[in-house]
């Protein structure tokens, strides 16, 4: 049974803060921070946005581009590490808002930055086995970094949603392969406001080991090579790691640039790989093959081999407002306004 992407949608908040603005508050060299991370600015959720509202906005677009009835969605899974509630499912809020209630299953997934791709895998299984007609997989985050921590410069906000099913996919998912170990590179304890990370340890044994493990595992399983792919999308905690991953695997850097958005919106955590894939689907042609590999601290990667079909050229099958247009629709805020919107001021 062929399973694939039926529709997709992205939601990126309008507010932006420049890395140089954050650097100036903490007395850091803006240029050095910005070039070190490969990030110019990041998307900031407004005071009335959170990972649930962004999830709903992206879901509405995905259902529209899929051209399906919301009542035909049999499962909604939302991946996030910044849930509005510690206990209460975001997926149920999405299900109500898109009018998919009540005949469906729903749950929230957490695996740092890769919970959204894991949600896609679950929807693939349920729809390929025909337990459900369509599944809705979402990655959504409004990540926060401790003030003056390296993460404050990179933690962005955004969401992407994918309708997964077997009928008239705009892109077929040929295979998926995952790579998981217990690696304490990044975590947030219960009741802690901000996450902790293990500094340089986050690169080699964490991001690269798992990203390369999943991508190579997938290509070995399929017998494919980097030259078979028109695009590659990697998790993008900063603007640099994806270039290095691409180079080690043997992908030309041109193949990752369409799906590399962290330099302009920051690391959107569970949404990062999925917004990258959305940006590629905005422009991809039938027959184009896409390698997608997420990474979540803790740690694991999910890799997918995807081939775009002719369906994508039909009317209204791509999202109406492409990712790059959403990125360019922005309003800059100074640090104090950013701190107000993100409720970083004591007593708010």
């Amino acid at each position: 049974m062929t399973v694939g992407i039926i529709g997709y949608g992205t939601s990126i908040p309008k507010l932006r803060i420049k890395v140089e603005e954050i650097a100036s508050v903490w007395g850091k060299n803006a240029e050095r921070v910005s070039s070190g991370l490969g990030i110019k600015e990041k998307a900031v959720a407004s005071f009335d946005e959170d990972s649930a509202t962004l999830a709903v906005e992206s879901a509405r677009v995905a259902i529209q581009s899929a051209g399906i009835r919301a009542q035909d969605i049999g499962a909604i899974f939302v991946g996030s590490e910044s849930k509005p509630y510690a206990v209460k499912p975001t997926a149920a809020i999405v299900a109500e808002a898109v009018a998919a209630v009540p005949d469906l299953t729903a749950a929230d997934f957490e695996f740092a930055c890769k919970a959204g791709t894991t949600a896609i895998q679950c929807c693939m299984g349920l729809s390929a086995s025909q337990y459900i007609q369509y599944g809705l997989a979402i990655g959504s985050d409004t990540a926060q970094g401790r003030p003056n921590d390296a993460l404050e410069f990179s933690a962005g906000s955004g969401a992407a949603a994918f309708v997964i099913g077997t009928e008239k996919p705009i892109a077929e998912i040929e295979a998926t392969f995952s790579y998981t170990t217990d690696t304490p590179d990044f975590w947030r304890r219960q009741h802690a406001e901000f996450p902790r990370h293990a500094g340089r340890f986050t690169a080699g044994p964490a991001y690269f080991k798992h990203t390369l493990g999943a991508a190579n595992g997938l290509m070995n399983k399929l017998g494919t090579q980097p030259k078979d792919y028109a695009f590659a999308v990697f998790h993008q905690p900063n603007g640099k790691f994806p270039y290095r991953a691409a180079s080690i695997l043997g992908f030309e850097k041109e193949k990752i640039e369409s799906g590399l958005l962290t330099p302009m919106i920051g690391n959107t955590y569970s949404a990062a790989t999925l917004i990258g894939l959305s940006a590629v689907l905005d422009i991809a042609k039938p027959g184009d093959r896409i390698l997608v590999t997420s990474y979540g601290s803790g740690a694991g990667s999910d890799a997918f081999s995807i081939t775009v079909t002719k369906e994508i050229t039909k009317k209204a099958r791509r999202q109406p407002v492409p990712v790059w247009e959403q990125i360019n629709n922005k309003k800059y805020v100074p640090y104090a306004i950013y701190a107000k919107h993100r409720k970083k001021l004591k007593g708010m």
Partner: peptide, 20 residues
């Protein structure tokens, strides 16, 4: 129409979402 938090409440209360 967009989907947003419609008003702020105390930290431990349920969140009121809705249209703007």
């Amino acid at each position: 129409m967009v989907f947003r938090r419609v008003h702020e409440s105390e930290a431990e209360e349920a969140i009121a979402y809705g249209y703007k």
